[in-house]
Amino acid sequence: MALKIVKPGLATSIQDLGRPGYFHLGIPQGGAMDRLAMRAANMLVGNPEEAAGLEAVFMGPEIAFTADASVAVTGAEMPVTVDGEPRETWTSFTVRKGQVLGFGFLQKGARIYIAVSGGIDTPPDLGSRSTYPIGALGGIEGRPIEAGDTLPVGSAPLVEEGRSAPAQLRRMPGNPAELRALPGLYWHRITEAAQQGFFDDTWTVAAEADRMGYRFKGGRVLEFVEREQPFGAGADPSNIVDGCYSYGSIQVPGGTEPIVLHRDAVSGGGYFTLGAVISADMDLIGQLQPNTEVKFRRVDMAEALAARAERRQMIEKLRQELA
């Protein structure tokens, strides 16, 4: 069983839940930007949650099937077709040998996840099939898929058609989107007015938004607390002596445009980070289109942990629904 890529879409890549454990060596955890959607797609077709599927951003690919398979498409809302006939998202359906899976124009969200029964069976690197193009790890030769590629798929029985994830267990950002953020180590570097302004202002997703990070523009320029820059830090007040970055951390080079680091981000550098978007809301970033309005909402650690627990419960409910 294999998938033949007729049209690749835009930077469509093989992703699973990622390769945690190497960030201290500079290798990001990678994996699906919207992990809930990736897990759900796998559950719908009877795969283990950590099986590899496809992540397509803004545009769907066109894929011909060499054998029968169960398929589910989750994440963004985008019309799905099999040989031109419509299919439901977040719902399992069968694609027969020789049929072509296609997509219409994106309606809502940013990334779709395509799971195929058996999972994509390319060789794992460091325990994951996730594609990390900058490090040439995972996927097909470490790159996004291209027209003419043949993706091997593991063998697995088909599941029944029409298995569906309940609407309340699907997650999509609102408009404006709200991202909860926790102030961090370098919060003291900006003035109280700037701290307030960051949460008061409405930001807009910039064109520079990808798997490494999402840039936001349109808010006020941050004002820094004056200091003599320490030895080893750059001259700009947004510089620090190099430090570690976490998944979700918010750096603001020059104090102008915040960047939230995502799955394929660098692990450290010389910009201060004012805090981090909480882990429970990182999936939502993966579904933001450029020019979407965003508000950051301040939370404390208790609220961040409660949100994480709530998200875990949501995944558990999905498991129960689709067991």
Binding site: L10, F58, M59, F105, L106, A207, Q289, P290, N291
Partner: peptide, 9 residues
């Protein structure tokens, strides 16, 4: 002619 994806034209 329709835009296949979101962005800046």
């Amino acid at each position: 002619i329709q835009s296949p994806l979101p962005g800046t034209f």
